[in-house]
């Protein structure tokens, strides 16, 4: 059952820059806050999806990375491709958890908002991507202390071998205060130059 798989494309969002397959697509100001950077990246990359603005920071980060990569791969919603999502990070949804906790901390200013609460789960960002790209596919969100290519490799290989997915969009989307990183890569059976191995994943992280 060792049918070979390959990394077709990969995308990074870090240090206020967006790149695809190692090529810079957009860079913002060096000292810019994440919230400003991601908005200007959205505009510059012709994302064109109004729901983006109601998302929390983790979803914006994951959504933009996935959008850049899936558009490049010409993934069309009407085709309903079977692309699984296997995401991971360290801080789960803590960025929004802290914001929500502030809204309920004391009795005098107790304003829990459902629009904030819904984003206090890390897998919501995969829901946002699934809605936009019409992915009715497998999704799972793992939390690790650090990037863990062994688990991502094993799990996405398993999904493909068991015919649960044609392709897997895999990676790391983390935001913790002003510290953020997105690294997403698409695993396919289509013959390519980058083998889907732990070493190749790690060298691109």
């Amino acid at each position: 059952m060792n049918s070979k798989t390959f990394i077709k494309s990969y995308c990074h969002i870090k240090n206020n820059a967006v790149s695809l397959n190692g090529t810079l697509l957009y860079h913002g100001e060096k000292e810019e806050f994440f919230s400003d950077f991601i908005k200007s990246a959205y505009k510059n990359l012709d994302t064109n999806y109004a729901k983006f603005f109601k998302m929390d920071n983790l979803s914006k980060l994951a959504f933009l990375g996935a959008d850049v990569l899936l558009k490049h791969e010409n993934v069309q919603p009407e085709k309903q491709e079977n692309i699984a999502l296997v995401f991971s990070n360290n801080a789960s949804s803590l960025d929004t958890d802290r914001k929500y906790q502030e809204s309920i901390e004391d009795k005098e200013s107790f304003y829990p908002s459902p629009a904030v609460f819904v984003y206090t789960l890390p897998n919501i960002c995969m829901g946002e991507i699934s809605i936009k790209h019409k992915l009715y596919s497998e999704n799972s969100f793992f939390i690790f202390e650090d990037f863990n290519p062994e688990y991502l490799h094993a799990y996405s290989s398993g999904l493909m071998e068991e015919n649960k997915a044609e392709k897997v969009l895999c990676g790391w989307v983390n935001i913790d205060k002003e510290d953020y990183t997105a690294f997403l890569y698409l695993v396919t059976k289509e013959e390519g130059s980058i083998s889907h191995t732990i070493k190749e994943i790690n060298s691109r992280f």
């Binding site: 789960l121 969100f141 939390i143 690790f144 688990y151 799990y155």
Partner: peptide
């Protein structure tokens, strides 16, 4: 390293799928 699965209210069932796959 432990694998922490946080996938909303399906996590408990999905954990058995993940265990199987690993």
């Amino acid at each position: 390293e432990p694998l922490v699965l946080s996938n909303a209210c399906v996590s408990g069932v999905l954990a058995t799928s993940v265990a199987k796959r690993l």
